[in-house]
Computed example of a mutant assay.
Amino acid sequence: MRNEVRERRSAEGMSQSDLAAAVGVTRQTINAIERDRYDPSIELAFELARHFDCRIEDLFDPELDGDGSADGEE
């Protein structure tokens, strides 16, 4: 799942540790999300969106294909 967490964090001048503390997770979790190695829980996705004052859809894109289904689904 593509995301804009790194871009938004950098734009705010925050470190991964700063963001992790703000949303109550570890720096390693933020790193894994930014590197597309971990999809956050819905609760964490909401917390990140709340932190950045945006919608979840503004942060995370499931990379839907043209027919509206996620890649690899039929």
Rank of each mutant, 00 (worst) to 15 (best):
T29F: 04
D53Q: 14
L19F: 08
D71P: 04
D65A: 04
E12Y: 09
E73S: 11
S41E: 00
M14S: 06
Q28W: 05
H51F: 14
E7A: 14
R50A: 15
S69W: 08
L59K: 08
D65F: 05
G13E: 04
E47H: 15
P40M: 00
I33Y: 01
E47Q: 15
D36T: 11
L19M: 09
E63A: 06
S69N: 14
A21S: 14
I33S: 01
I42H: 13
S41N: 00
S10K: 15
M14Y: 13
G72L: 02
V23S: 00
R55G: 01
I30S: 01
G72E: 05
T29D: 04
T29C: 07
G66Y: 06
R9N: 06
D36G: 08
D58C: 05
R2S: 12
F52G: 06
L19Q: 08
M1Q: 14
G24N: 05
D18Q: 04
H51W: 10
D61K: 13
E57L: 06
G24C: 01
P62I: 14
D58I: 07
G66N: 06
E43I: 09
L59V: 09
D65P: 00
G24M: 05
I42T: 13
S10F: 09
D36L: 15
T26M: 02
I42P: 02
M1S: 13
V23L: 01
E34G: 01
L59G: 06
I42S: 13
R8A: 02
H51K: 10
Q28V: 08
E74L: 12
V5N: 06
N31I: 06
M1F: 12
E63K: 11
L59E: 07
M14A: 11
R27Q: 15
R8N: 11
F60T: 09
E47W: 05
E57F: 07
F52C: 07
E4Y: 12
F52L: 12
F60L: 11
E57R: 11
P62C: 10
G68L: 02
I42W: 02
R27Y: 03
R8V: 13
A32E: 11
E57M: 04
E43F: 10
V5F: 10
D36C: 14
A22N: 00
V5W: 09
E12S: 08
E7Q: 15
D18M: 00
T26R: 01
V25N: 00
E4D: 11
L59A: 07
G66Q: 07
D65L: 09
F46R: 15
F46H: 14
Q16T: 03
A32C: 05
V25C: 05
R50D: 15
E34T: 10
E7I: 13
S17H: 06
L59F: 10
R6P: 00
H51S: 04
P62W: 13
Q28P: 00
P40N: 00
E34Q: 04
G72K: 03
A22K: 04
I42F: 08
A70G: 08
D36M: 09
F52H: 06
S17P: 00
E74G: 07
R37H: 03
L59R: 08
G66F: 05
D53E: 14
I33T: 01
I42Q: 10
S17G: 08
D58L: 06
E47P: 04
L48Q: 01
R55L: 09
I56V: 15
E47T: 15
M14D: 06
F60A: 08
G72P: 05
A70M: 15
D36P: 02
E43D: 13
I30H: 03
